[in-house]
Structure formats: C-alpha cells, structure tokens
Write a protein that binds this DNA or RNA. Structure first.
Lengths: 192, 192
DNA sequence: TTTATTTACTAACGTTCGTTAGCCAAAGAT
DNA sequence: ATCTTTGGCTAACGAACGTTAGTAAATAAA
C-alpha cells in the first residue's frame, strides 16, 4: 500500500490553485507563489517549466473530471429526466470537490496560450453538447417542453458553474442540498 | 440641442471596457490602452488619475444601472410573478446594453481596492436582496413554490449574469428572445 | 564509499509595469 | 494680440515581472 507523500510538485500545484483563484492568474506572481510555498521563486523551476504550465494542468485536469463525471452520471440512470438530474449533480460534485481549481477553470482559461486555448474551447463545447443531447432527447420523448435547447443548456450550465461561490456562505449548505435545490428549480421552475 | 462630442475621456473609457473585457484588467497595460486609443501611455494621464480609477468607474456605473433598471421594472407591474419577470428582463437589458462593461463588472471587480471593494460587495448584496424580497413575497402569496430563497436567487442571478456571452453566437438571438426564454425556464422549468 | 541526482539557494538578465516630469504646440479666452 | 489652458509628446523613474545561470548541500543510487 503506497503511502501518500505530499511532494513539492503537488504542494506547488495546490498553492497555485489557491492563489490563482484568490488573485487571478495574471495578478499572481511566481514570487507570490514561491513565498506561499516557502521557497525562493527560482526554486520553483526545479519542479515546473513555466507559470503557463501550471494553468494548463489545472484547466485540463478539471475538464477531464467534468467529462468523466458526466459519463458516469448518465450511465447510472435509465430515463432522460433522471439522466439530466444525475449529470447536473455530477457537475456540481466536480466543482464541490475542486473548489479552487474549478474557479480557476472558469475564470482564468482566457490566459491559456494557443494551441491549448483552442483545444480548451473545443472541450467545453463538446461537454455542453452532452447536455444539449440530453435535452433534445427529453423533448423527443415529450418529457421536456419544447424549449430553445441552446439557451436552456446555457442557462443550466451558467447556474451550475457559479456554485463554487456557495460553499463559503455562513449557513453551511451541503453539496446534496445545493444539487437537489438547483436541479429541482431548473427542471420544475419556481412558479407553482 | 446639444450635439454628441465623443471626447477623449469617453473614448478612453470605451476602449478600457473593451480591453479589460478581452484581456482582463490585470493583463491590460496602460500602454495597451494608449495604443488602442492612438496616443502615448503618458498622455492618458491628462485625462485620468490612475488605471484603478477606470475600473472603479466601470464597476460602479454598471452597479448603478442595475439598481435603476430594477426599480423601474418592479414598479411597472402589479403582481409579484410579473414583477420578477420584469426584473429579470431589466437585468438582461442592462447587460445587453453594456456588453463590454458588464463583463468587466462581473469578472474584474476583484481588482477593486478598499474601500471600494467593500462598497461594491455591499451593493451586490443589496441588489440581490431585491430579488430575494420578490421571491419571498411570491411564496407568501402562494404563487411560488417553497424554494430555498437564497439558492433560488443565486441560481437566477447566475444564469442571468452569463448572458453577455450569448450575443456573439452565430444565430443572432435578440435580447427579447433571450429574456423570454430564460425567464420562462426559470419560472416554469424545463420539465412538462 | 563513491557517484549521480535532486532541490534548494543567490544573483542577475532583459522586459514590462504604472506613473511622473518637463516641454511644446494648438486652441480658447481676454 | 497676449495670456492661459488643454492635450499631446519624449524621457525616465523605481518597482516588479518571468525566467536563467551557476553553485552548494542533501539525498538516492551504484
């Protein structure tokens, strides 16, 4: 059984997520990062190639997690409505388990350089497509209203993507409560 | 009748909104800004006190517009459900009329310095409170479901705040279509 | 035990940052 | 016609940026 060894590299990564979230990628200097880790800025380069590399790792790691979670979610349910609900919960789950990194994913991806930037955008589009497919199916099955699919997915994803903001509030909402409330609201609306 | 004179100051402001949106506040230099305006960086300081001042103006101008639009919206309708719908449309309207500035408002406010940062957060909270009050009222009037009010408002505002992203897409959605679709989805849900 | 690798350090590089100082020409006011 | 204000300019300031070079100590491999 391998013991968990928190090495420097992962310590740097963890700290980078925290600082990129708090101050933004562009406003976080390598000296800031080094100081928080407890070493000199130059020493960082024994563990990584560039500042940009850190951002890449964070963004694509989270992207991967979203894909994985979606895949698991929709194969866990039979009917479309439940699949959608499961996908929503899975999405919220990824965010909840990566509060710093997902914030960076959402706000700092613009600082990716080509060709990664294009690759990133494509992945996002592809991920959203999964949700569009679900809604398309739900409409065909006459379970969903005939909504504008793109707008509906846009609305859903936008609401979900902001949930990282919910975990610092005073009344501690659990991930389950958040997921249940939001998915209900989006599926059934606020009106009686 | 006064003719519109597009002076340097407002030209700088307009360009700042554009660049802060495209590259982010921290990654936009005063030299970038000057170049886009067509003057030297030092010349900017004949028209403004600091880079920070530009961000302040943008953020608080938009905040003011949100308040104003909300106030007008809810006084234009009688019943709570229609008030909420009007407020949603008004919110989307402010964004649609300030595509660059509202993006800056949403993403770059973290770079505000105290005491403006605190003032800004307070204004946001106060604005959201207007929506919470509406939903509270709707529930009391038994027109809305007994949702978690904070979560519901969070979901609504989050979905609305992303709408700046919708206007660059290929199929040209009008502001009216967007507002109608999203407010319907949030009020009535996607499920039949 | 010797050798090789890893990881920290100090010093410094070239660049860019926001901003100020001082100057000069054009425009407006008297 | 003279004076004042406005709004450009060039030059430069000190500070901070990402990153590299070179070195020494600790650790791992042989």
């Amino acid at each position: 059984m391998a013991t968990i060894k928190p090495d420097r590299k992962s310590e740097i990564r963890r700290t980078a997520k925290k600082l990129f979230k708090e101050k933004g990628y562009a406003a976080t200097s390598m000296r800031d990062l080094a100081k928080e880790v407890g070493i000199e800025a130059a020493s960082l380069y024994n563990h990584l190639a560039s500042k940009e590399e850190l951002l890449n790792e964070i963004c694509f790691d989270i992207a991967e997690q979203f894909f994985q979670a979606y895949k698991t979610a929709i194969s866990s349910e039979k009917n479309t409505s439940k699949k959608l609900k499961a996908a929503i919960k899975a999405h919220i789950g990824v965010i909840a388990n990566n509060l710093d990194a997902s914030t960076v994913f959402f706000h700092e991806w613009i600082f990716l350089k080509e060709p990664d930037l294009t690759k990133f955008k494509k992945m996002r589009y592809q991920y959203d497509q999964g949700f569009r497919d679900l809604i398309q199916r739900g409409i065909e099955e006459k379970d969903f209203k005939e909504v504008n699919i793109k707008l509906a997915v846009f609305t859903i994803i936008s609401a979900l993507n902001a949930t990282y903001d919910l975990y610092k509030s005073t009344e501690k909402l659990t991930q389950e409560e958040i997921a249940e409330s939001i998915s209900n609201l989006l599926l059934k609306g606020i009106k009686k």
